[in-house]
């Protein structure tokens, strides 16, 4: 179990909401998609890969087999699902510092939502309703959301420059090359491993690596 993969953290939060309020939330989500200006704050927080809010009716929870006991649910639920870079604290804090009004708008009608300011009750609300991630995989563990965007910029601009520069004189090439670099001056950061998110997560990771090395050595021994 880990909520962390590479530079990303996965957060799932399921909070109960009375079904008649859920309709209002759906309306707010619809408006937010229709008028994306409302999401400027969210988009400006560059640590976010992805964030999604979904309303789940009590009948919409997965029932995978006959043997699975049927649960009796009293509420409709709001599922919040997000992938972001950095630590839980960093993410939740950025949200509450930067867009407290937006958070309150989305969660306002949820049962016992304490409002995003003050911080500690909000932290407790999220922690209490968070579902831990059972399996989480990252194909590019060195890449943060910004790095993915930057890499795409570099690839596009470089391919374009390659095409455009075939017939240039030396001076023109130099001017074009400078323009290329200038245009990419916020896309050239080096990608190295993630900073340690917490000491606890770091220690878990270290134990896992050690275990894997031991297993590999053991397997090698058997084959040999």
């Amino acid at each position: 179990m880990s909520n962390i993969a590479g530079k990303a953290y996965a957060m799932n939060v399921i909070t109960p909401i009375k079904s008649y309020w859920a309709w209002i939330n759906k309306l707010i989500f619809w408006a937010a998609i229709k008028f994306p200006g409302a999401l400027t704050g969210l988009i400006t927080l560059s640590l976010i890969h992805y964030a999604r809010w979904v309303i789940l009716k009590d009948s919409e929870f997965p029932h995978l087999a006959k043997e699975q006991p049927k649960e009796k649910l009293h509420y409709t639920y709001m599922l919040f699902f997000s992938n972001f870079n950095g630590s839980w604290d960093q993410y939740v804090d950025s949200f509450t510092f930067a867009i407290p009004g937006g958070l309150d708008l989305f969660w306002k009608w949820n049962i016992r939502y304490p409002k995003s300011v003050t911080l500690t009750p909000f932290h407790k609300y999220i922690r209490y309703n968070q579902i831990e991630t059972i399996h989480y995989y990252s194909a590019y563990p060195l890449a943060a959301a910004n790095d993915v965007k930057a890499a795409k910029q570099v690839k596009t601009a470089l391919t374009q420059f390659h095409q455009d520069s075939q017939t240039l004189s030396d001076d023109e090439f130099m001017a074009g090359y400078k323009t290329l670099l200038r245009g990419l001056q916020h896309d050239l950061g080096d990608m190295y491993p993630t900073p340690i998110v917490t000491m606890a997560a770091y220690e878990v990771q270290e134990r896992k690596y050690k275990h894997e090395r031991e297993q590999a050595a053991l397997a090698g021994g058997e084959n040999g």
């Binding site: 400027t40 704050g41 988009i43 400006t44 510092f97 930067a98 867009i99 407290p100 009004g101 601009a157 323009t179 200038r182 245009g183 990419l184 001056q185 916020h186």
Partner: peptide, 12 residues
């Protein structure tokens, strides 16, 4: 290209 700008009123 290469520019950043203030995201006016994005944050509280």
């Amino acid at each position: 290209p290469g520019a950043m700008k203030i995201s006016t009123d994005a944050f509280d």
